[in-house]
């Protein structure tokens, strides 16, 4: 297996939130990410899935230190990013970039797309001359399928799919090793989604990128990810290779998620497992296993102790459930 470039260990992000109004207001920690660990190899695509509000974006931003983590480590090529000074962290940004969910909102409306794509170069490779920068920008534009004549246009003159291509060009222009893709296609028309997904896959292959692919669309994740991490209320439920996860989900939550995806094959009889109840508030997560309020298999033990992430097989399939052995899938 290839080299591990990123190792996240017990990462926690708590937002202080004022609960209750008036005089009695006190701040409570909102546990957006609560003890997430995983590692990522060079050239690998790791999917991060989960319902809205489970902390996917927060996790991605905390890795890049766009949000300061509350606790835990983000080890990049053997170096803990959380302990770096701001200046040192800034230099690391050349190696890790991000693509955002809302393509238009992530582009400054006052700048031309040439200026937007050039910004990381300007900041992170200041030794480049203006002409060299221009060549790199046009090269990045060509790679994502934007015509060089477009360089002086403004973001509002482009469609959603084109805006996302601009965002991708900005991410690859510094030739990073990792790109965090925060739901890069969920705001796009279905017809454009496939194009952008294919573009990302091509870029990954050609540039040897590692991708953290955040999504709630399981069919896309299954299509492009080597491994998948399932998140629920800021905690890892299951982590496995894409094939193992979709063929044999071990965690009750993953099973419910996968059964809810419509399967085009009419031969397969398919009854979705319904998730009962609402997502609990991350301000007051359930004791023990965070999933227990909606789990069919919950027992007393689940309310008392939080299950650890344990190996389910020798192939790196990890699951966080007290009863995974008893649950046949």
């Amino acid at each position: 297996m290839s080299e591990t470039i990123l190792k996240v260990e017990d990462l926690k992000v708590y937002f202080p939130v004022r609960a209750g109004g008036g005089w009695g207001a006190k701040t409570l920690p909102l546990k957006a990410v609560d003890g997430v660990s995983f590692s990522l190899h060079r050239g690998e695509t790791l999917g991060i899935v989960g319902e809205s509000g489970c902390g996917k974006s927060t996790l991605g931003r905390a890795i890049l230190r766009l949000i300061d983590p509350t606790a835990g480590q983000v080890v990049w090529l053997g170096e803990d990013l959380a302990s770096l000074s701001n200046t040192a962290m800034r230099r690391k940004r050349r190696q890790m970039q991000i693509i955002f969910q809302d393509p238009l909102a992530s582009l400054d409306p006052r700048l031309t797309i040439g200026e937007i794509i050039a910004e990381p170069l300007r900041e992170l490779e200041p030794s480049l001359s203006r002409a060299e920068r221009r060549v790199r920008v046009e090269d990045a534009m060509a790679r994502v399928g934007l015509l060089p004549q477009m360089i002086n246009r403004y973001p509002h003159e482009f469609s959603g799919g084109q805006c996302q291509r601009i965002g991708i060009a900005r991410a690859i222009v510094v030739r990073p090793a990792l790109i965090i893709c925060d739901e890069p296609v969920s705001a796009l028309d279905v017809s454009v989604q496939a194009q952008v997904v294919n573009l990302l896959m091509d870029l990954q292959r050609d540039l040897g990128l590692s991708l953290l692919f955040i999504s709630h669309d399981l069919s896309v994740v299954r299509h492009i990810c080597h491994r998948v991490l399932v998140l629920y209320l800021g905690c890892v439920m299951e982590l496995a290779s894409s094939r193992a996860l979709f063929d044999r989900p071990r965690h009750p939550y993953t099973q419910a998620l996968i059964s809810a995806v419509p399967i085009p094959d009419p031969e397969v009889t398919h009854r979705p497992i319904l998730l009962e109840g609402d997502l609990p508030s991350p301000l007051a997560p359930p004791s023990g296993c965070v999933f227990r309020t909606r789990c069919r298999y919950a027992t007393d033990k689940c309310a008392q102790t939080r299950p650890a992430l344990e190996d389910a097989d020798a192939g790196g399939h990890q699951v966080s459930c007290h009863h995974w052995k008893e649950i046949a899938s």
Partner: peptide, 17 residues
């Protein structure tokens, strides 16, 4: 809080910039 500001931070821009 707009996303393009976060994008600028990710692009390595300093606060004065």
């Amino acid at each position: 809080n707009r996303e393009f500001i976060e994008a600028a931070v990710a692009a390595g821009a300093r606060t004065p910039t």
